[in-house]
Every structure is written in structure tokens, then in C-alpha cells.
Design a binder for these strands. Structure first.
Lengths: 231, 231
DNA sequence: TATTTAATCAATACAGTGTATCGACATGAG
DNA sequence: CTCATGTCGATACACTGTATTGATTAAATA
């Protein structure tokens, strides 16, 4: 019995009208401001001028709130009606991946939720639908499923990596490149031990590439891999 | 100033001798038994017959404990000395990915930590070193960095996905295939709405493939993509 | 060796958490 | 107008991470 199975309680002329949408919106606000850890049922309820226990009419547990928040973000990720299926699987997947990344930049806590549990909300399903439909008639179901799974795994991992280093940068106030050299004297000291010669070369000689560009380039590698199996 | 920067306190003839290794071992035990959420500083300390505050001589914060736990797992992931670099980048990367997955099956909480913050512990660095060294002389630094980043992103995402559905299965006591059909009546009902025709086809017609096999196959796709750019 | 200094320890305390319980209350039905 | 249903919010509980504080111990000095 998940959130998606239980109907919302009927609205009542209460001190403050309440529904899941409002609850989730408040939670998303809090998370945008202070990360997932800033989301507590008490604070969410407070934003809605309600007692904490009031929420338990709409949610069975805090995890369910996270599920709802995630699905709310999937709503943002869905393609506009306009940009239809006419563009082929590759463009569809690429666009979906990039929108997901953009959503994660707007809502950094998305990185903590992505891939954390199966997403079965209506918007997550709709996103899956769009993606799968883009392969209609192009390959057998299992190949398509594998293709989508592979790309999604990459997207999840890449977003987590990017957000993780974004947070680390923010915590130290340095760019990633500088941060790698200055992060505590630790990394520098480790590299100077000579125990990581290859790694040292990469840290020193590597080019600092824009995260968005890296994401797109790597994504293209993965899409190429898929293309090779679809054709 | 991170964990890696601070030396361990000198051992003292205390009621119970303590060091980071022992602390991390206790934390890992707890996490193996009850997941990350079962790890509290109080419980870790209790396992070591120590007061909770005692740990703060060895850790500055709970997050640091997680960092140490993650690095402890990286130690398990490192290749045995024997199986050296002679096998080429592809085998090196593949083996690393599979060992990472195996570690995640032993320590499911790894899925929650992977990609969560930059890993700069000695073992994580050693793992990076081995991986990067496998490309020595085969391509320019930036290409190699991109290759490794892509594969790692896939591995992170794929492991999270697998552990997530493993947990969901366990929670409902059903196989994934059955679970998709039975998960709350929700998914079934959603699919029956006809709003997700492509998705419905995949759920009904898709073959239930062993997770390990899927991981390996998809990994090979990604490795192919890398190969195409290295050669 | 005697005394001071420094460090480590455990206890206490605090503010916060998710959620179970339960009495008060308001709403709809009869 | 009365009664039953079901929601609401207060209280309570067990637990969390960690700041603070004195006591106790070991090391350094005289």
C-alpha cells in the first residue's frame, strides 16, 4: 500500500485548507533552500500553519513525502506537449537527460533521491512512457529496455557526481580544479607521496571542463553505444 | 580540514582501546545489519563499550564516519596484487565495476553513499589510480578522464537502481517481475488506464533478466562506447 | 620525585527528529 | 436536536547528533 494507492482525504473547511499538492510544494521549497535534511514534517507543517500530525492524513511516512517530491520534479522534467515524438529516439533521450540535469541544478536534492527507490508516481511513469515510446518498432522490447536502463543509469550517476562536487566546491569556496589541489592539504599531500602517479598526472595536466559540456559529451558516448545496438 | 587530514589520536590505556579502524568496523557491522539508518553514533559507541562522545576524538562529524566507511569498502574493491595491469584497460575497468557491484551486494548501504560526495580516502584514490593507470599511453588525459568518468557514472547509477529494486522486492516479498505487476494494485491500475501503452508493453512482454547479467551486458555497451573513442 | 600542564574521557544537556496515542471537537446523518 | 464518524492537534516517547563541562588521567616540567 503506497502513496499512489491511497486517495487523498476529502477537503474540509479546516483552519487552513490542505492537500498533497500544497504539502509537497512546501516541502520542495524547504528542500530547495536547505537541502533534503532541512525537510522535517514539523517544518513543512509549520509552513502551512498546521500541526505536524495533520500531515499524516495525507502521508503515511516521511519517505512517502520524498516520493511525492520526486514525482513533482518528474513533472518538470516531462517534455512540453509541443516537442513531440517526431524527433527520433536519440533526441528524445538526450533531451530527457538534459532536462533531468537541469532539474537537478534547480533542485539539488534530486541527486539524493534519484535512483534511491523505484519511481512509480504518475509523472515518473509518464517520463518512462515517453522514453520507451520513442523506440517504437525500432528493436525488440528487451534491447530497448536495456538501452533505456543504460542511459538512465549514466544520467543518475553523472548527476550525482556533478552535484556532489558542486557541494564540495561550495563548502570550500573554490573551483573544482583548485579544490582538487587545495582540498585540505590532503589530496596534494597524497599525490606528493608518489603512490598515485597516474592520478597525479590527471589532476595536474587535466583540463578543467565545464560540467554541462562533460555531461553532454559523455552522454553522447552512451547514446552512441545504444545506437550501435539498435541499428 | 577533513578526516584524512587529521592524525589519529594516540592510543591510551583506556577502558577499551579504540581507533578509527575499530570504529569503522563497528559502523560497517551495524550498516550491514540494518542499513545506514541503523548507524547512530550511540549505537556504534555501544558496540565498543564506550560513551558516544568518545568517538568525537576520532571523528568530527557523523558524515566523516560515512566517508571512512566508504573508503573501507573501497579497500575491498581494490584488485588483489596478483591480477596486475597486464590485462588491458577494458578488463581492468570491467573487473573494477564488477567488484564494486559485488561489494554493494555485500554492503547494500554502499548504494546510498556512492557518488554522494567526492571520495578522497586512500583506498578510493588507489582505486582511481589503478583505473587511470590502465590507460597509460593509450589516449590523451582528457579522453581518458572522460572514459573513466562515464563508466563510473554508469556503475553508480546501475548499482543504485539494482539495490533500490532489491529493497523494494524485499519489502513486498515478491520477485521484480511480479512486483511490477502487484506493487500495490497501483502500477497495474495505472497501466490499465491506457495512458502508458508503451510502458505497458514492456512490463508485460519484457523478459525478467538476472540483475547481474543485465549489469554486465549494459556495462559492455558502455565499454564499447569507450573503446570506440580510445582506438 | 613532586608539581604543573595538557589532554581525554564520560556525563549531562539541548534542540530537534519521526511518529503513536488519545481526548476534544466539528461535521454529517438520522 | 441528537448521535456517531472521523479529523485535528496536543502531548508524549524514544531517539538522534553534538556542545558543554568537570573530572580524571597521562605527560612534561622543575
Amino acid at each position: 500500500m503506497t502513496v499512489w494507492d491511497r486517495p487523498e482525504p476529502q477537503p474540509r473547511p479546516a483552519p487552513v485548507p490542505l492537500d498533497r499538492e500544497r504539502i509537497v510544494a512546501a516541502a520542495v521549497e524547504l528542500a530547495d533552500e536547505g537541502g533534503l535534511e532541512a525537510v522535517s514534517l514539523r517544518k513543512v507543517a509549520a509552513r502551512l500553519d498546521a500541526g505536524p500530525m495533520r500531515l499524516y492524513g495525507y502521508l503515511a511516512t516521511k519517505e512517502e513525502l520524498f516520493d511525492l517530491m520526486l514525482d513533482a520534479v518528474y513533472a518538470e522534467i516531462l517534455p512540453r506537449e509541443a516537442e513531440g515524438q517526431a524527433r527520433g529516439w536519440r533526441e528524445t533521450l538526450r533531451a530527457h537527460a538534459r532536462r533531468t540535469r537541469q532539474a537537478a541544478l534547480r533542485h539539488e536534492w534530486l541527486a539524493d533521491l534519484l535512483g534511491g527507490r523505484p519511481s512509480l508516481g504518475p509523472n515518473a511513469l509518464a517520463a518512462a512512457e515517453v522514453t520507451l515510446a520513442a523506440f517504437d518498432g525500432l528493436a525488440d522490447v528487451d534491447t530497448v529496455a536495456r538501452a533505456v536502463a543504460t542511459v538512465n543509469a549514466y544520467v543518475t550517476g553523472a548527476i550525482r557526481r556533478e552535484i556532489a562536487s558542486l557541494r564540495a566546491e561550495r563548502a570550500t569556496g573554490l573551483s573544482e580544479h583548485d579544490w582538487q589541489r587545495a582540498h585540505g592539504p590532503h589530496l596534494t599531500r597524497m599525490l606528493d607521496t608518489g603512490r598515485y602517479p597516474a592520478l597525479a598526472r590527471f589532476v595536474h595536466e587535466g583540463t578543467e571542463t565545464d560540467a554541462g559540456t562533460s555531461f553532454d559529451l559523455e552522454l553522447d558516448w552512451v547514446l552512441d553505444a545504444v545506437a550501435a545496438r539498435i541499428a
